[in-house]
Design a protein around this nucleic acid. Structure first.
Length: 378
RNA sequence: GGGUGUGUCGCAUAGCGGCAAUUGCUCGUGGCUGUAAACCACGCGUCCUAACGGACUACGGAGGUUCGAGUCCUCCCGCACCCA
């Protein structure tokens, strides 16, 4: 199981400094949780992920269930052994795929939608490739089209077999644009599933319950209160987060004060650089995001000088290191020119270098914030 | 010297006489927040238009046939292969 110790609370914000203790070691919080959906931080070895400062990763139930299947992982001795990652691990429940393979795919939107956010998704409407029912979600696999059913029981069984230190309850991650009636019904399901997850999960695993509610204040509050009333080991804040960052902050504000303050809070799927300070100030302890790894593979580096698109030919003539202030191996070794060349040539090593740097940069960024909380300036 | 092919927008390709012309790559621009993502979208002859759209110039070169030619014919040039 886990223990969560809060070492310090900020006086100038809701930020807190803590230590999350698991059977596979400790994580200083606030912490960034890099995404290793298919039991891999794409392009990196597990050792390299550690070298880039990663201390905890999150893998994905739906994807690992689809392939290779949790049985393979279980027989390998669990996820830690399978991927040779000795440190703490989380698994997401598959709830995100209810969204990403469903309305997310249909509408071409993310969790924070800049458009199409009027409440136009009505109760009873289902996305094309996911049918959401009271007992769970019927997915059409994006890989071979076969039907995959995932409900709270299934998710707990799979996550039990995968064997991460911390698992998440199975929820419906709603898209931006659900109307109130849709959200009310969805919340009933997510809450019912939360209780089932608590009953079904393995004893030696910690479980975080997930709050939902879209952008409806009373539903966000209701969900936070309900999930907090259950014996979860921590909380995930999920679902769509409004049409802009201002709304995201409001949603966080409505939610956070109803969550048991002694338990860790994980903001699911949010963590662009300009979000990180804000959400930590709101009291978030953990957050995962695909941005650093995903952008890296699309040629973009995050640096102290801002986002840098290494696909641009202009960088071919730039002999400076990627980030002049970064202490990572990549910045200490290679020029922008070389990295740009690798990216433009489609060399996989270029994607590795950017992934390594981006993770190092994100982790260092959060380490910097922890220091500031420690010395009282954050 | 003889024969058979073949030359299309940077490269590679498609193209029953109605075509600014297919597709892939390159190139350019934009996007990516619990990863369906080393991906996706758009653009890629020139000029005009806010836009629908329009005008010009284009399929090795020069002629020709035709209402109309990248597509057919003749000659020339380049390339490939085969026979001497």
């Amino acid at each position: 199981m886990i223990e969560f110790e809060i070492l310090k609370k900020s006086r100038i914000s809701d930020a807190r400094l803590g230590i999350l203790k698991t059977q596979h070691g400790e994580v200083e919080t606030p912490a960034f949780v890099p995404v290793a959906s298919q039991a891999s931080v794409k392009t990196l070895t597990s050792r390299e992920a550690e070298d880039a400062g990663c201390r905890i990763l999150i893998a994905n139930t739906f994807l690992l269930h689809d392939r290779p299947g949790e049985g393979i992982v279980k027989r390998a001795g669990g996820l830690h052994n399978f991927m040779q990652w000795p440190r703490p691990l989380m698994t997401d429940s598959g709830g995100f795929q209810v969204f990403s393979l469903g309305f997310g795919k249909d509408l071409g939107i993310g969790k924070i939608a800049a458009r199409n956010t009027s409440p136009h998704i009505k109760k009873g409407v289902n996305p094309a490739a996911v049918k959401i029912a009271d007992d769970g979600a019927y997915f059409k696999s994006p890989f071979d089209g076969k039907t995959i059913f995932l409900g709270p029981q299934e998710s707990m069984k799979i996550q039990g077999d995968l064997g991460a230190d911390i698992i998440f309850a199975f929820d419906e991650c709603t898209p931006p644009g659900v109307d109130r009636a849709y959200m009310e019904r969805s919340l009933k399901r997510t809450h019912a599933w939360a209780k089932i997850c608590l009953e079904e999960k393995k004893e030696n695993q910690a479980i975080f319950g997930i709050t939902q509610g879209s952008k409806f204040r009373d539903l966000r509050e209701k969900s936070a209160k309900f999930i907090s009333s259950l014996p979860f080991d921590g909380f995930g804040i999920g679902g769509d987060l409004g049409e802009n960052k201002h709304m995201t902050e409001k949603i966080l504000f409505w939610t956070m004060r109803h969550l048991n303050p002694r338990k860790p809070r994980h903001l699911l799927g949010i963590g662009h650089l300009d979000d990180i300070a804000r959400i930590i100030r709101r009291g978030i302890d953990l957050f995962d995001c695909t941005a650093p790894t995903h952008y890296a593979r699309n040629g973009v580096a995050f640096t102290s000088a801002g986002k840098m698109d290494m696909r641009k030919s202009a960088f071919l003539k730039d002999k400076k290191p990627l980030d002049l202030k970064c202490k990572c191996e990549v910045c200490g070794t290679y020029s922008r020119s070389y990295l740009s060349h690798l990216v433009r040539s489609g060399e996989i090593t270029g994607l590795r270098h950017l992934t390594f740097h981006n993770l190092f940069y994100f982790n260092a960024f959060v380490t910097g914030i922890r220091k500031k909380i420690k010395n009282g300036t954050f």
